[in-house]
Write a protein that binds this DNA or RNA. Structure first.
Length: 195
DNA sequence: GCACGGATTTCC
DNA sequence: GAAATCCGTGCG
């Protein structure tokens, strides 16, 4: 492919309000220069914002701990963790240092290097070979980066409640999930019953 | 030191 | 509806 992304997004981009960052990341390009020589690229089509210590869906709700320290730290740092013992989820720290926030990358559209399916936050990290080694790594330099994309017009952006956070009470209803309307690579919300 | 449950996905 | 399967957190 001849597609070439823009320059990496700089730390000041991530210092904005996490809601703005989550919205603005739509259309940006996730790039992983793997040590095996493969260059994985995907266009971000779905994100979620986790905003502040008071957000009961955000890991930082427990305050500053060894685990959440990264979220309170400087913006533009990767936050990768293992969920349910089997899936890595990839986030980027937002807001200035001292204010905890993270943007979960939930869906990408494959551009190059990617094999297999990418819908869903756990699947896309597998497809792009993102692992714990990227935790706490800056995403504007290094092997895993986010580059500027073409931008997505407001008319193509949908918002809604975040997925899998029903336990968070009123916070679960915040429309802090952003995706490109009708995009096929947006994660499917599974049926709560049979499928 | 131990019990509990989760920003998920898949199968019955 | 529940398993798979690891670890952060809370409590003792």
């Amino acid at each position: 492919m001849s597609f070439s992304p823009g320059p990496p997004l700089q730390p000041n981009f991530y210092a904005q309000d996490p809601l703005v960052v989550a919205r603005s990341l739509l259309g940006a390009v996730l790039v992983h220069e793997h040590s095996d020589g493969t260059r994985y690229m995907g266009r971000i089509v779905e994100t979620e914002a986790y905003r502040g210590q008071e957000d009961q869906a955000c890991h930082a709700k427990v305050g500053r701990t060894p685990r959440t320290e990264t979220l309170f730290g400087p913006p533009g740092i990767g936050y990768v963790y293992l969920i349910y013992g089997m899936y890595h989820l990839f986030n980027v720290v937002a807001w200035p240092e001292g204010k905890a926030a993270g943007i979960l990358i939930r869906g990408i559209e494959p551009i190059s290097g990617i094999t297999g399916t990418t819908h869903g936050p756990g699947r896309l990290t597998r497809a792009m070979k993102i692992t714990g080694e990227h935790h706490k790594q800056p995403v504007w330099e290094g092997s895993l980066r986010i580059h500027g994309g073409e931008g997505v017009p407001e008319s193509q952006v949908s918002t809604g409640p975040r997925v899998g956070v029903d336990y968070a009470g009123e916070w679960a209803m915040k429309p802090w999930r952003y995706w490109i309307t009708d995009h096929p690579n947006v994660s499917a919300v599974p049926n709560k019953k049979k499928r």
